Amino acid sequence: MNDTALQSSLLPGQQLARGVSRALRSHDFVAVEELVPTSGLRVDVMGLGPKGEIWIIECKSSRADFASDKKWQGYLEWCDRFFWAVDSDFPTELLPSETGLMIADPYDAEIIRMGAESRLTAPRRKVMVQKFARHAAIRAQAARDPGFISAF
């Protein structure tokens, strides 16, 4: 599948997540999408930095998408920094000023505002790095052998 076909098959939030994940690599972070830090929460993008820092990025494709998100504050205890990723047409004045902001498209993202840092405790960081590693490994194995992984 070529890049244009792949992009057109993605929902708007997935297109933002793709650009965010690409941008994180330029900051020496690796990223996974749709990670569950705890029951009832699923983050759009989680980034893991070279020193073990954890960033959570929530992708919002519209005002309605943002207004319907009632769980985002629950993500704060699972990361060192929290960001919103929106496209260039999003009304950014709706987003809380103490959170980070990225302007994204399917190909890249730019950090406009760094989220406030709130360092995870060592035990919570260990849990999150393990969840990240397992999630990434499952995704990699599913890409290589989709029939096997989906059976579990």
Rank of each mutant, 00 (worst) to 15 (best):
E34Q: 14
F90K: 10
S68C: 10
R125W: 01
L11Q: 15
I103Y: 05
Q14I: 00
G115N: 03
Q7V: 11
F66E: 06
S68V: 05
V43F: 12
A5Y: 00
H27R: 13
M46A: 02
N2H: 07
S150M: 05
F90G: 10
R18P: 08
C59F: 01
S68E: 12
T4C: 00
M114C: 07
W72Y: 09
P37A: 00
K71Y: 11
V45D: 04
L101N: 11
F152M: 15
G52T: 03
R134A: 03
Q14G: 05
W84V: 06
E77H: 07
S118N: 02
F29S: 03
D87A: 02
E53M: 06
L94I: 11
A109G: 03
K70G: 12
S9C: 08
T99H: 13
A64C: 01
R42C: 13
D108L: 00
G115P: 00
E98L: 12
Q15N: 12
D69V: 11
D3L: 07
E77Q: 12
D108H: 00
A116P: 06
L11H: 11
K51G: 09
A136N: 11
I112Q: 14
Q7C: 09
A133T: 03
D44F: 05
P96C: 00
Q73T: 13
M128E: 05
A67S: 10
L10N: 15
I112Y: 07
M46L: 02
Q7A: 02
E93L: 06
W55F: 04
F82E: 08
P96N: 04
S68K: 15
G100Y: 12
G13Y: 00
F29Y: 14
S62Q: 12
I111Q: 00
A137S: 15
D44P: 10
L10I: 12
S97H: 14
V20D: 08
A137H: 13
L120M: 06
F132W: 13
D3E: 15
R113V: 02
R113D: 05
L35S: 03
M102S: 13
L6Q: 10
L41Y: 08
F29V: 07
A85W: 06
A64I: 09
G100K: 13
Y107W: 05
M46R: 04
D65L: 09
R22Y: 07
Q7F: 08
E110M: 06
M46D: 03
